[in-house]
């Protein structure tokens, strides 16, 4: 492990977890794939369903954040984090034990998004495979936080994991993972050639198969930065809503001008991150809509955390929303 005097210890903690456990919070394969339940997904196939373990991380983020937010940044945060780092060195992090504040309902909800996404795609006729034993995190945080040297060897590991599944196409639930596969990893030697799709795109291609979804009032769309700006996907979400007969409104800033949910700042500047989330929630509630839809795990978690109790709004992942529009009677 490198100890760098110019970066905050929490970043090293995340890095070490990714390198050591293939997951930013050191969740293991069992924890990562518990969502799969009755879905019968083979480990090999043409289209790889890729969660990257990202929705699975979300229930741990808020409690972790809470621990960090109320600690004086000038002092104890660092010793706390240094302590956490030592834990990683010796035993790895046992998130359930450390973040006892985690809510079971959050865990169920975020995990079920993986299930629902796979279910929807299967219903739409996609033959998916999923590597419950071998799936590792995309490495997006290594890239974003500057651990580019580590990324060299991590890319090899991700490449091997993908190759093992024999997939030609990878469908990513998180736009952050999609960005890695589409824009970052192709620059590395010997990374397998892949067609990279997001969940949104696959649904969009077969949107005519979805049934109408009844809603009382228009929903508001929140575009994720990665999806809208880096991957250029925003119209697709509107098309999907049109095809299920749902009317929608736009906040003051959206599509390529969308406002960030504040999520990327969570680890280092939790208070600022929260304020940014709250401000984005205001932009969303100002439209008068009572439900916001989005398609990114971090946006989901951040905006959820930025809700104003006096101005209730339901924040839903597009996966959760569309799940209502699939025909549950048709055999999988």
């Amino acid at each position: 492990m490198t100890t760098n005097k110019h970066i905050p210890p929490v970043l090293e903690l995340i890095r070490d977890n990714i390198i050591k456990y293939g997951n930013p919070l050191a969740l293991n394969h069992r924890q990562n794939s518990s969502w799969i339940k009755d879905l019968d997904l083979p480990a090999k196939g043409e289209i790889l369903f890729y969660t990257g373990g990202e929705y699975q991380l979300l229930p741990y983020l808020e409690p972790l954040l809470k621990t960090m937010t109320y600690i004086d940044p000038a002092g104890r945060t660092f010793s706390l984090l240094m302590g956490a780092r030592k834990l990683v060195n010796f035993i790895g992090i046992a998130p359930e034990k450390i973040f006892a504040g985690m809510l079971a309902k959050d865990k169920d909800r975020y995990n079920s998004i993986n299930y629902k996404a796979a279910y929807i795609l299967k219903k739409l006729g996609y033959d998916l495979c999923y590597d419950a034993q071998g799936e590792i995190y995309s490495g997006a945080l290594l890239y974003e936080l500057g651990f580019w040297q580590d990324l060299q060897s991590y890319a090899v590991r991700v490449g091997q994991a993908i190759r093992k599944t024999q997939a030609k196409t990878v469908v990513c639930l998180s736009p952050h993972a999609a960005e890695m596969f589409k824009h970052v990893y192709p620059q590395f030697n010997e990374f397998p050639e892949l067609e990279v799709k997001t969940f949104v795109e696959l649904v969009w291609e077969k949107r005519d198969k979805l049934s109408p979804i009844p809603v009382d009032s228009p929903v508001v769309v929140h575009d994720s930065c990665r999806l809208a700006r880096d991957l250029g996907i925003s119209k697709e979400i509107r098309d999907i809503l049109d095809s299920v007969g749902v009317s929608y409104v736009e906040p003051i800033r959206n599509k390529e001008w969308t406002t960030c949910c504040g999520g990327p700042g969570k680890m280092l500047f939790p208070e600022i991150s929260k304020i940014i989330a709250k401000r984005r929630v205001i932009e969303l509630t100002d439209t008068g809509a009572s439900k916001a839809l989005l398609a990114c795990p971090y946006c989901l978690s951040s905006l959820q955390g930025g809700l104003n109790p006096d101005k209730p709004m339901v924040i839903e992942d597009l996966v959760e929303f569309i799940y209502r529009g699939v025909n549950h009677n048709v055999e999988l």
């Binding site: 500057g146 930065c225 700006r229 969308t258 960030c260 504040g262």
Partner: peptide
């Protein structure tokens, strides 16, 4: 490390300076 790398600055910038990319590299 304060930058969110959200990229909205690039949309605004008349010179289309890719700040998030540079920030990543500098990190």
């Amino acid at each position: 490390y304060t930058c969110l790398r959200c990229g909205r600055c690039v949309e605004r910038c008349p010179m289309q300076i890719d700040v998030p990319k540079m920030v990543g590299r500098l990190r």
